Amino acid sequence: MDFPERFSTLPEYAFPRLRALLDSHAPGGAPLAMSIGEPQHAFPAFVSEALAEAMPLFNKYPPNDGSPDLLAAIGDWIAGRYGVTVDPATQVLALNGTREGLFAACLALCPDRKAGATPRVAMPNPFYQVYAVGAKAAGAEPLFVNATRDTGFLPDFTTLSEAELDETAIAYVCSPSNPQGAVADAAYWRALLTLAERHDFYVFADECYSEVYRNTPPPGALQIATEMGVDPDRVVIFHSLSKRSNLPGLRSGFAAGGPRAMAELKKLRAYAGAPLPGPLQAVAAKVWRDEAHVVENRALYAAKFDRADAVFADLPAYVSPSAGFFLWLPVPDGEAAALKLWTETGLRVLPGAYLSRDTDRGNPGKGFIRVALVAPAEDVDRGLIHIRDCLYS
């Protein structure tokens, strides 16, 4: 039996790789997972009551694009957060988590050819792995752009050649970035959008960590595009309640952009997408309309980052993240560091190379580990001390 060659170069997914690396070894202490970004803070207290009220909606097929109430709530949130007015009916699509949207948008919007060649889909390296799978599924070639300390831990697309830019159909950007916690400022978005206009490619802005920041709210791609007068169909933004509201199991996210681009995405999703169940759409609408719990959540993460700053104050290469909920810590070798932490302390972290690819400029994740600050504060504190004492003392 033959299998498609387009996926033959995909490595094993990050977490099976981590299990293969660690699970044959006994932990060196009480196991503590800081490897996966699964929020553990309490979700809003009103969610349970809202779900109970909406239970009768399980008796109905849910609207594929999102209920009018949910779309309106998302539209209001975009207006309040970014000062951008969108038409909820034509510019917003409710998603069953953003991963499916990040994948499906590539299928829906990537052309078969670009500048007479196989299209390229540019993405940061390290990156959320669905970007590369979406590119491969669309028949495009992933173009990995290293995001390093020298580039502010964001991909510098201006380093691409004119030919590469002309062949680029889509550029994925994650801001705040996973795993480094870097924020694309307004100048970064303006430069990228100018390139996108000049070379005619889409910008897919993965903004799932946008509400977990320390000081200043990160600007959004659609916000800057609107200020610049860029064609709104050139930009698609993706957001989620998973990180903002500690509801990864609700699977509620959205995509928003120009009406023509969103129409193409909706058309594909009508055939292949799984709509969010009706009761969950009703709950999500209420959650998007509440900001009090988001402020509380942000404060909890800020305290953890302050603690990390104190623990690693004497580590010269430490970079304090601006947003998100990960640490991106430098080590000689990420796999060796992860194995050492597990066998000596019982702490699980993720080798950075599991989130990145080899390029002609090296693998930018190899000399790092990713540490998720999602556990309760006392566990995070214990894990940070384990890292400091095991790897840097």
Rank of each mutant, 00 (worst) to 15 (best):
M1H: 13
E5A: 13
H25C: 12
H25T: 06
S35P: 01
E38V: 14
P44N: 11
E53Y: 02
M55S: 07
F58K: 11
N59V: 02
K60G: 04
P63H: 04
D65Y: 13
G66E: 03
S67T: 15
A73G: 01
D87M: 01
P88S: 09
T90E: 10
A94G: 02
C106D: 06
L107M: 03
A117G: 02
P119G: 13
R120Y: 11
Y131P: 05
V133L: 14
G134N: 13
A138D: 12
L154M: 14
E162S: 10
I170H: 04
P176L: 11
S177A: 15
Q180F: 13
G181Y: 11
V183M: 06
D185P: 07
A186W: 08
A187F: 00
L192H: 00
D206V: 08
E207T: 02
C208M: 14
P217S: 08
G220I: 01
Q223P: 04
A225G: 02
G229D: 04
D231W: 06
D233Q: 08
L241I: 11
S245C: 01
L250M: 14
G253H: 07
E264C: 07
K267N: 08
A270Q: 05
P275C: 02
L276D: 05
P277N: 07
G278S: 02
V287I: 14
D290A: 15
E296V: 14
Y301A: 07
Y301N: 07
A308I: 10
A313W: 01
L315G: 02
Y318D: 08
F326I: 00
L327E: 10
V331P: 11
L341T: 09
W342F: 07
E344K: 15
T345I: 03
Y354R: 05
G362T: 03
N363I: 04
P364E: 00
G365S: 04
G367V: 03
I369R: 12
I369N: 08
A375Q: 15
A375E: 15
P376R: 10
R382V: 04
I387M: 14
R388N: 03
R388E: 09
